[in-house]
Design a binder for these strands. Structure first.
Lengths: 120, 120
DNA sequence: TACGCTCATCGACACCTGTCGATAGATGGC
DNA sequence: GCCATCTATCGACAGGTGTCGATGAGCGTA
């Protein structure tokens, strides 16, 4: 049962999640750590992605179909699909394809890591 | 004792700080709130600015002279000055000019607001 | 006043990214 | 098999931004 699709769309693995992101205020950040943290925050630095996170988190059952994300955001389907992929690659959402539809759930642990990075 | 310089370099006032940034996961974000939050995270989405925050936070006395920020970052003086201004305008740093030098301090309450926005 | 030092601003450039329409791929129903 | 639906990808374009050198504005000192 070889997994055919081994793309980078998969959520980040736990080691990467916990490894990332030292606290900003606690100790001096070296260039590498700063780059990783900045990349993580860059994912959150977009209103469409923030609203997507919010939509998924508040969806019934905690999961949202991509088909229900286009209309409330007022953006084109390719644009919404692009942002969903960015969130998945960042480990903030998981994607599960069921039939013709793609369902997304939030990964609260990933958000918690970024939150902790803002703690002194 | 009129305050001569009433520029936008001043830290954000407390009302703006507390008003901003509803939790992402708690309730659906409208377009305006998402835009504000995204703008706040965009400030953090740069490695130079993150290292500046870290440098200031870990400086002796909690304050850092701009003259001591250029060399460790490996960027030009105008670039560092630009990033410091961005941080001040975002309310994450305060600037105090003493003589020829500019001294910066972190505003932990502002960071706390962003941290809370990431709490479910 | 003249000079040197510190910092901010300006103008320009390269790069990144958010956006869209068009299109391809995949799935289920007829 | 054929078609409709949902999603992902592609190519292109506009706008934003990080970066630098050059320059200007303040301040302290001789």
């Amino acid at each position: 049962m070889a997994v055919v699709k081994a793309r980078s769309e998969e959520p980040m693995d736990v080691r990467e999640i916990t490894a990332c992101c030292d606290p900003v205020l606690a100790a001096p950040l070296d260039e590498a750590a700063a780059g990783e943290l900045a990349a993580a925050f860059r994912v959150l630095a977009d209103p469409v992605r923030l609203r997507l996170l919010s939509l998924v988190a508040n969806a019934p059952g905690g999961e949202l179909c991509a088909c229900d994300a286009v209309e409330p955001l007022g953006r084109s389907q390719p644009t919404v699909s692009h942002h969903l992929s960015v969130l998945v690659e960042a480990g903030l959402l998981t994607r599960e394809k069921r039939g013709r539809w793609a369902w997304f759930r939030v990964v609260p642990e990933r958000l918690a890591v970024l939150r902790d990075a803002l703690s002194g």
